[in-house]
Amino acid sequence: MHRFANPNRFLRLTARILPWCALATAAAFIAGLYLALGVSPPDYQQGESVRIMYVHVPAAWMALSVYSFMAAASAVALIWKHPLADFAAKAAAPIGAGFTLIALVTGALWGQPSWGTWWVWDARLTSVLVLFFLYLGYIALVNAFDDPIRGAKAGAVLALVGFVNIPIIKFSVDWWNTLHQPASITRIGAPAIHSSMLTPLVLMALAFAGYFVCVLILRVRNEIAGRKIRALRLVQAQG
């Protein structure tokens, strides 16, 4: 695995992957949006408002997945001190924050027609709001140090401590009484959703995941470039 974690090898490898990743993401978005907005039927209870699901659910899945990825990368960075793991965690944070923001805003837009309120301070919604602040806190902390290596280390500790929130979010709908419904896809047994809705949902989820990979590659490449610039400037300043 270490062979692939060489920054220069990463640059070469991702230069080849990126166009295909972008292409696959675009295709999944086009197909997913077409099915989600055009073909999939209205819900028998929620009517047309159910279409919000096709952006809300993938965004919420990605909000949790990206944080888990960030925590895993942080653990690798702390244990093996690999710079690429730090870059990956730092690069993932704004994308995760974006997904969380989408989940929160689209959730409010879905809550108003189906629950009659934009927001409630229940376990699921509050824990996702905490996740959003964790992302923002991580970004602020990592950038608060003059030395990027110290910043990354502090951020890694925060990311790992904050990981406790992920199972809380996941199981909040089972542990507490919330307005938010429990999981319908990732449950034991078959998903409680018809294929006419499941297909666009899966396509949109793939599109979101592809988007994450593409933008993550861009941002890690940017981190590598930033670190090189810093090293060159230090050499310049020294003479």
Partner: peptide, 12 residues
């Protein structure tokens, strides 16, 4: 969208 457009389109 049967009146739900005001919620669905802003979400997208």
């Amino acid at each position: 969208m049967d009146g739900y457009g005001v919620y669905v389109w802003p979400a997208f």
